[in-house]
């Protein structure tokens, strides 16, 4: 079965979903990501869905779950690149994904993750004095 690759950049994990996933694949990704957050001690997770033509309630639930699980594991999840048509459809479907942070693209997503981590760790603290 095909697998979605998870890349590690610094303390962030990057997933770019490029295929129309069937449900088992989405569940596998959810498992893989949770494991990888723990093993790599990642603080941020970025999921790029700019290639996705649709997000139905199943994928929506997966995104929600990943965001919630990463929060428990002290990592922040940002979903980036959602297409306008997909966003409109999701809202009409009734899925607001309120627990998920979003950004327009990968660049903005990284900046947002940095900002959130800095806020959590106390802004203005120099890197070398930061715990961890």
């Amino acid at each position: 079965m095909e697998q979605i690759p998870i890349l590690k950049i610094g303390d962030c994990l990057l997933v770019s979903i490029q295929v129309d996933m069937h449900d088992r694949m989405a569940l596998a990704l959810q498992d893989d990501l949770t494991n990888k957050i723990v093993t790599s001690r990642a603080r941020g997770v970025m999921i790029d869905i700019s290639a996705l033509e649709i997000v139905d309630s199943f994928i929506g639930r997966m995104l929600n779950n990943i965001a919630a699980m990463s929060r428990v594991l002290d990592a922040v999840t940002v979903v980036v690149g959602m297409r306008p048509a997909v966003a409109i459809t999701l809202v009409e479907l009734g899925l607001a994904l309120t627990g998920v942070r979003t950004a327009l693209n990968v660049d903005r997503g990284l900046a947002l993750i940095r900002k959130i981590i800095d806020e959590q760790d106390g802004a203005g603290v120099l890197d070398e004095y930061r715990e961890n």
């Binding site: 033509e53 649709i54 997000v55 139905d56 297409r83 306008p84 048509a85 997909v86 409109i88 459809t89 009409e92 479907l93």
Partner: peptide, 8 residues
């Protein structure tokens, strides 16, 4: 958008 709606 309509394509996306009906596919979803």
């Amino acid at each position: 958008v309509d394509q996306t709606r009906i596919i979803t």
